[in-house]
Simulated assay, not measured.
Amino acid sequence: MFPAKSALSIHFSILIFLSRLLFLTSSLESWRADKHVAMFVFGDSLFDAGNNDFLNISIDYKADFPPYGETFFNFSTGRSCDGRILPDFAATYANLPLLLPYLYPGFNNFSHGVNFVSAGADVLPQTDPETLNSRIQLSDFKKVANLLKQQLGDAEAKKILMDAIYLNSFGGVDDVRFLHNNRNPTESEMEEFVQVVMGNFTDVIKVN
């Protein structure tokens, strides 16, 4: 049985997820009619399309074996579920192809966007050094932005980046590990931790 605070955190995470889904659905309405739009995805296992499959890390952070993927793709794709993830549904709704993971070998056409996500990724880099944390993912996005400028020119690249859909699922891993390491945190300790995570994520965005 989950401790009360852990259960509360899980319920809160579910509410956040559902609110993001509702916000995303309403936001996509304005893009759906467009002929071209890009989508860039960041975060943890909720949105990972398979980047961890191309990292030399523990199998605990991978989803390249059954039963993952068995109900839709009929093979494991690196997604931490048996079918599609929310970015897949968002891409379909916006008339986009399912986004490939950034580390997919030989992939360099980012005009429709790309998935930078890494299962187990966090905002605080010291939490888990094996995965692609927020700083690494935002740094990779900066590389993609520069590549788009080289391929398409500054004006077209700027238009794609300005009109793009951006999805993010960071924070859950940091929260779970905090609760694991602090079995009975006080309300002030939890609030302080949230501020630390938000502060670090804000700094990452500003730097990149």
Score class of each variant (00 low, 15 high):
191 E>R: 15
201 F>C: 10
179 L>A: 01
198 M>G: 12
182 N>Q: 01
191 E>S: 15
172 G>A: 14
202 T>E: 01
188 S>C: 06
172 G>K: 07
188 S>D: 12
192 E>N: 11
175 D>Y: 14
177 R>V: 03
190 M>A: 10
187 E>A: 07
180 H>C: 10
180 H>R: 15
199 G>I: 09
187 E>M: 10
183 R>E: 04
200 N>L: 05
171 G>F: 04
173 V>R: 06
187 E>W: 12
176 V>R: 11
188 S>M: 07
202 T>S: 04
185 P>G: 04
203 D>H: 04
179 L>P: 00
190 M>D: 05
197 V>E: 01
187 E>L: 11
178 F>M: 04
172 G>R: 05
194 V>S: 14
198 M>R: 14
188 S>V: 09
172 G>L: 10
175 D>G: 14
177 R>I: 03
196 V>Q: 07
195 Q>K: 15
198 M>Q: 13
176 V>W: 09
171 G>A: 10
188 S>Y: 08
199 G>F: 08
197 V>Y: 01
185 P>F: 06
182 N>G: 01
181 N>E: 00
183 R>C: 00
197 V>T: 02
189 E>K: 11
180 H>I: 12
173 V>L: 05
180 H>Y: 15
172 G>Y: 03
176 V>C: 05
203 D>S: 09
189 E>W: 02
172 G>T: 06
187 E>P: 03
195 Q>W: 09
181 N>D: 02
178 F>I: 04
186 T>I: 04
196 V>N: 05
200 N>T: 14
191 E>K: 15
203 D>E: 06
185 P>T: 05
190 M>G: 09
175 D>E: 15
203 D>M: 04
176 V>F: 11
175 D>V: 12
187 E>D: 09
172 G>E: 07
203 D>F: 03
187 E>V: 10
175 D>N: 15
195 Q>P: 08
200 N>W: 03
173 V>S: 10
179 L>D: 00
171 G>D: 07
174 D>S: 10
173 V>Q: 09
193 F>R: 13
195 Q>C: 11
180 H>L: 13
195 Q>S: 14
177 R>N: 08
182 N>W: 00
181 N>R: 00
186 T>M: 09
194 V>K: 15
174 D>R: 06
196 V>A: 04
194 V>Q: 14
178 F>A: 05
193 F>D: 13
171 G>N: 08
200 N>I: 05
198 M>A: 14
182 N>P: 01
182 N>V: 00
202 T>W: 01
200 N>S: 15
186 T>Y: 08
180 H>D: 12
201 F>K: 09
203 D>R: 03
202 T>L: 00
202 T>D: 02
202 T>H: 03
203 D>Y: 02
182 N>Y: 00
191 E>P: 07
175 D>R: 15
189 E>P: 10
173 V>I: 09
184 N>P: 01
196 V>H: 04
196 V>T: 08
191 E>V: 14
192 E>S: 13
199 G>R: 05
194 V>M: 12
189 E>Y: 03
199 G>N: 07
200 N>G: 11
